[in-house]
Design a protein around this nucleic acid. Structure first.
Lengths: 119, 119
DNA sequence: ATTACATGTGAACATGTGTTCAATCGTTTG
DNA sequence: CAAACGATTGAACACATGTTCACATGTAAT
C-alpha cells in the first residue's frame, strides 16, 4: 500500500514538492561553487596554518616557510591561490613581499571554526 | 649592511623571535588538522549542497540524491564522512534513514560563509 | 522464508591537488 | 652592468579523493 510520498525514491508515489522546496531555497550553483572554494582553501592544514599565522601578524614568504618547515616555493603557490580568492593581500617592501589577511571575514571564519571545535 | 632581522630568510641576521611568537600563538597541529578537516568537508560542492539542504529540512538519502542528480551511493559515501565528523546525524524510520544537521555550529559556519560572499 | 526496496560498502577508475626542483622575474646593492 | 637574493612560475611527480558499478546489509511486507 503506497504511502503519500515521503521520499523521492522511484517506487513510491513521489511527492517532489519537498525536494522542489529545498531546491528553491538553496543558493544557485555558481554561488555554491564560490562558497565551496572558500571553504576548500581553509580546508588544507598548510593553508589554514598560513591564514592563522597571518591573522596574528603580517609575514613575508620566508617567515611563513620557516614557520611551516616547507619550501618557499610551496608557500608561494599557496599564497597565489589565497590571493586569487581575495583571502590575503600583499605589500612590497624592497625585495620582500609581506602578506596579510584581506578582510575581516576570513578572521571571523577562522574564529567560528575554532569555536566549533569546543563542544 | 645587514638590517636588524625583519625576516626569517637565510642570509639576513635572522631575528626568529617574530616567527617564534607566531608559532606559539597558533593552535597545536592536532587541533589544526581537525579544523582543516571540518573546512575541507564544507569545501566540496556536493557536500556543501547536502549540508545546505539539510539546514533547511530533514531529508532521506533518496531525496538528496534526486536533489543533486547523482547516485544514491555517492550520497551515502559523503554522508558517511559527514557523519564521522559529527556534522550530520541520522534517524531510522522503517527502511529509510533521515539525515539532519548535527548541531548549530555547522549552520553558523554556513551562514557566515554566505555572508562572506557579500562584499 | 522469500521478495522488495532503501541504504551501506568495497574496489576501481578518473580527476584534482600539494609539494618539489629548476628556471625566471624583480628589486636592491656593489 | 653585474651579482645577490627574495619571490614567483612551470613542469612533473606522488598522493588524495569523488564518483560509479556491483554487491552486501537491513528492514518491511507478502
Amino acid at each position: 500500500m503506497p504511502e503519500t510520498g515521503m521520499c523521492a525514491c522511484e517506487t513510491v508515489y513521489v511527492d517532489k514538492e519537498k525536494v522542489q522546496a529545498v531546491q528553491d531555497n538553496i543558493s544557485p550553483d555558481e554561488t555554491l561553487h564560490v562558497l565551496a572554494n572558500t571553504f576548500k582553501l581553509l580546508g588544507e592544514p598548510t593553508r589554514l596554518k598560513i591564514l592563522l599565522a597571518l591573522s596574528i601578524e603580517e609575514l613575508c614568504v620566508c617567515d611563513i616557510a620557516s614557520l611551516l618547515g616547507i619550501t618557499r616555493s610551496a608557500i608561494s603557490h599557496q599564497l597565489r591561490l589565497l590571493k586569487n580568492s581575495r583571502l590575503v593581500k600583499f605589500r612590497r617592501a624592497g625585495k620582500m613581499v609581506y602578506y596579510s589577511l584581506d578582510d575581516q571575514h576570513v578572521k571571523h571564519l577562522l574564529r567560528d571554526g575554532l569555536e566549533h571545535l569546543r563542544d
